[in-house]
Design a binder for these strands. Structure first.
Length: 496
RNA sequence: GGCGGCGUACCCAAGUGGUCUAAGGGAACGGUUUGCAAAACCGUCAUCCGCGGGUUCGAAUCCCGCCGCCGCCUCCA
């Protein structure tokens, strides 16, 4: 069975067929770099990362493009308001590009921590101004845009498809929209392709219409076209960007190229924390960097606990993947604790297989193991192929982990265990990006040797029934985060 | 006001017409194991899927009504 994905455009699950066989052009709306990334960015990023990983594991040659918005994204509406990057720069007394640079790097750090694959191309809006001007020019030429006082607006009335993605009609919207006075636009739904730069505007470029800067929506159309061609296979982003951002992208791109812009639109749902929307006004936003490294409990503005402590990045990732990308997900301390216990169960089972694969005796490969593995792989693929059901895929991993334990306990041979280990790395690691922090025990460092020595001393104490001493060794190691585990094959340990 | 989504056990969360007396995880409880623990393993844990109707041979899954929660419509992943 091949991949089936939910297409926001048709509102149903469709079989996935890329434009060119085995090749996928994947564009994801990246972030606007005026602040550090929060858990919402993590949810979106992790889910789209899992999709790209799965496409690649499935044999597709994916070109993954994720933009960085560093100019043009206005805080108000398309013809008024300030660029948030510029606003942040003013607050900090920095150049806007310095702000963009700082938060771009911070975002890369967060992505890396959560084991998101770096996009193949991370284009920036400011680096593609000529392309945007060119697109603007084409749209004017084709009669889909008009210029007013140095700004260029897209003429929504010229594109009958406008509203199809988000299920709105321009006429309906007019009724609910606040009356826009003193607007230059012909129609309230028209949006800016190019904005005239007023007096003190720092981020500005020379254009056929004078000094100005590009509108937010235009960058994605221009950059997607630049790197993926007129039609991209998959375009992803947050549900909150479905309207107006994606709607506007479609209008610009299709009017410009005359071709369908996107074959499959994918939208991830939003997240909440303790049942509430994360909002600046509530002071309950949780940054990725805090979730994975805070030394103390995270509180909201009213002193309520958001997260008791930090969680390993892979635990955060695991938690995100236990819900579907189109479902909303609530972050809470309890939920993360539960995810942590479960995630470490997988980690430990797979680590044990890897360990056993190095030490087990050689033995002819077993048909039973081979059959079980292909069964696991099939169930996992079925889950992922059904609109990237990562939650169901993780459920398969738990079954897999249980079997791993029993193979090791039953003394499976080195060859079988190596095959098991390879599959575990493929499904958990390559496909889902569940790559846990090294818990030690590979036996190569001085610390490992020391712990090994203490374990041996504890064994001596236990043999001579000196339990006071053996327990003391165990307890004191635990106090510094090293947990001993006694098993039939001896004692293993892991460091937290 | 307009548009859309959701409500599954103590918690998280899959499943969207029959294989569902509902996956998986966490917690809890009982047991095996252990010098004692931890880990691991086995077992128990929703006859039922917000509530009330309806359609159907058959519904958690479709339709209608109600209640509750959330999102979008202005920037947000």
């Amino acid at each position: 069975m091949g991949l089936r994905i939910y297409n926001s455009l048709s509102r149903q699950i469709e079989e996935f067929t890329p434009l060119r066989p085995r090749k996928v052009g994947f564009y994801k709306c990246g972030m606007t770099v005026y602040g550090p990334a929060h858990l919402g960015h993590a949810k979106s990023g992790v889910h789209f990362d899992a999709m790209v990983r799965w496409l690649r594991v499935s044999g597709y040659d994916v070109t993954y493009v994720q933009n960085i918005t560093d100019v043009g994204h206005l805080t108000q509406d398309s013809d008024d308001g300030e660029d948030p990057v510029t606003r942040e720069a003013r607050k900090r007394g920095l150049h806007p590009m310095a702000v963009a640079e700082a938060f771009s790097r911070a975002w890369l750090d967060d992505m890396d921590a959560l084991h998101m694959l770096r996009p193949d191309i991370m284009p920036r809006a400011t680096g593609h101004v000529p392309e945007q001007i060119e697109m603007c020019r084409e749209l004017l030429e084709k009669g889909h845009a008009y210029e007013v006082n140095g700004s260029v607006y897209f003429d929504v009335a010229s594109f009958p498809g406008y509203g199809r993605l988000s299920g709105r009609s321009v006429a309906e919207q007019e009724a609910g929209t606040r009356v826009e006075l003193r607007s230059e636009k012909r129609h309230p739904a028209d949006f800016a392709l190019w904005k005239r730069a007023e007096g003190g505007h720092i981020m500005r470029w020379q254009s056929p219409w004078g000094w100005g800067f590009p509108g937010w929506h235009l960058e994605c159309s221009a950059m997607a076209r630049q790197y993926l061609g007129d039609t991209v296979d998959i375009h992803g982003g947050g549900l909150d960007n479905q309207f107006p951002h994606h709607e506007c992208e479609i209008a610009q791109s299709e009017c410009c190229t005359g071709k369908p812009f996107v074959r499959y639109w994918l939208h991830n749902n939003m997240c909440t924390i303790n049942g509430q929307k994360m909002a600046k006004s509530l002071g309950n936003g949780v940054l990725i960097r805090d979730a994975i490294s805070t030394p103390q409990p995270l509180l909201d503005r009213s002193g309520q606990v958001l997260l008791e402590r930090a969680y390993e990045p892979t635990v955060v990732r695991h938690f995100i993947l236990t819900s579907h990308y189109r479902a909303s997900q609530d972050f809470s301390n309890d939920a993360l604790i539960a995810a942590e216990s479960g995630s470490y169960k997988l980690r430990d089972a797979f680590a044990e297989v890897a360990r056993a694969a190095r030490s087990a005796a050689s033995r002819p490969a077993s048909d039973a193991v081979r059959t079980a593995l292909s069964e696991i792989e099939k169930r996992f693929a079925d889950a992922m192929n059904e609109d990237f059901n990562t939650a169901a895929a993780i459920a398969v991993l738990f079954d897999f982990a249980r079997q791993c334990r029993s193979w090791v306990a039953d003394g499976a041979g080195r060859e079988d265990l190596a095959t098991v280990d390879t599959l575990a790395r493929k499904l958990a690691g390559d496909a889902l990006g569940l790559i846990w922090r090294d818990t030690g025990g590979s036996g190569s460092s001085k610390q490992d040797d020391l712990i090994k020595m203490l374990i041996e001393m504890r064994q001596e104490a236990r043999k001579s029934k000196n339990f006071a001493l053996s327990d003391q060794i165990r307890d004191r190691l635990l106090a510094i985060g090293i947990e001993l585990r006694d098993g039939p094959q001896g004692t293993t340990w892991s460091a937290s």
